[in-house]
Computed example of a mutant assay.
Amino acid sequence: MRKLNTAVAALGLMLAGPVLAQTAKQATLFKNPQCSCCEEYAKYLRENGFEVKVVATHDLPLIKKQHGISGDLEGCHTTVIDNYVVEGHVPVTTLNKLLTERPAIKGVSLPGMPAGSPGMTGKKREPFTMFEISGDAKSKIYAVE
C-alpha cells in the first residue's frame, strides 16, 4: 500500500508540473550587459512568481523606441510581460494590477532608477509614481505606491 501511495503522489506531482508551469507569468527583461540592478530586478520578479528570461543587449535605445517609450518615461531596463511593456523598476503590485485589469495601453513605467525601488539599493524617499505608456503626448498616472 505504501508503494501505491508513493506512486500516486509521484503521478500527482508529474501532472501538476505542467499546470504550474502554465500559470507562471512569463517575462523577458532587456538590459545593459554591465548593469547589476537589472539582475536584482529579475531576481525580485522571480521571487514573486515570474519566470524571467534576461537578454543582455547594447541596443536598449532601439528596444525602447520599438515599444514606444518616450525619453521622459525611460527607466533602467525594459521588460515585456504578456504583451505589455514594463519600463524600469516597477513594483509587482502594479504589475499584478496591470495583468488583472488589462487596460488598453502599451504598458507602464517607473522612470529613472528611484532609490528603494525593487532591485535598487537605498531607502524609498517618496511614493513611486508609475505612468501609462500609451503613445499619448501627455503621460497619465497609472498607479502610485
Rank of each mutant, 00 (worst) to 15 (best):
145 E>A: 07
35 C>N: 02
136 D>W: 10
32 N>E: 10
52 V>A: 01
23 T>A: 10
27 A>W: 03
19 V>R: 07
61 P>G: 03
71 G>Y: 13
28 T>F: 08
119 G>A: 13
3 K>Q: 00
100 T>L: 09
105 I>M: 05
27 A>Q: 03
20 L>P: 03
119 G>K: 11
2 R>M: 00
85 V>I: 13
75 G>R: 06
64 K>L: 01
32 N>I: 00
75 G>L: 08
55 V>L: 01
136 D>N: 15
123 K>H: 13
142 Y>L: 11
94 T>G: 02
20 L>M: 13
78 T>A: 03
132 E>A: 15
123 K>D: 14
46 R>K: 15
79 T>F: 02
23 T>H: 11
53 K>Y: 08
110 L>V: 07
114 P>G: 11
107 G>E: 04
129 T>C: 14
142 Y>M: 09
116 G>Q: 05
99 L>M: 15
19 V>W: 01
104 A>F: 01
118 P>Q: 14
52 V>Q: 03
23 T>K: 14
116 G>P: 06
81 I>G: 05
15 L>P: 05
41 Y>M: 02
19 V>S: 03
37 C>Y: 04
19 V>E: 01
20 L>V: 12
144 V>G: 01
12 G>S: 09
134 S>E: 11
134 S>H: 10
130 M>F: 04
145 E>W: 12
72 D>R: 15
145 E>L: 11
30 F>I: 00
22 Q>G: 04
113 M>H: 09
115 A>W: 07
58 H>W: 00
143 A>G: 07
39 E>A: 13
96 N>A: 14
81 I>K: 04
130 M>G: 02
23 T>G: 03
9 A>G: 07
39 E>S: 15
64 K>A: 04
9 A>V: 12
48 N>V: 07
118 P>D: 13
123 K>Y: 11
81 I>S: 07
76 C>W: 01
111 P>Q: 08
51 E>G: 06
61 P>C: 04
135 G>L: 09
125 R>H: 10
45 L>F: 05
98 L>Q: 05
123 K>E: 14
132 E>V: 08
27 A>F: 00
82 D>Y: 06
83 N>S: 15
42 A>S: 14
73 L>E: 03
96 N>P: 05
62 L>R: 07
94 T>F: 12
53 K>V: 10
3 K>E: 00
31 K>T: 08
117 S>V: 13
67 H>P: 02
49 G>S: 06
85 V>P: 06
46 R>G: 11
8 V>C: 05
73 L>D: 01
50 F>Y: 15
137 A>C: 05
114 P>N: 10
84 Y>R: 01
144 V>F: 08
22 Q>D: 10
132 E>Y: 10
98 L>D: 03
36 S>G: 12
32 N>R: 01
7 A>E: 08
79 T>N: 11
26 Q>W: 03
74 E>P: 00
13 L>E: 13
53 K>I: 07
39 E>D: 15
86 V>P: 05
51 E>Y: 04
63 I>N: 03
10 A>M: 12
125 R>W: 07
143 A>L: 08
59 D>L: 08
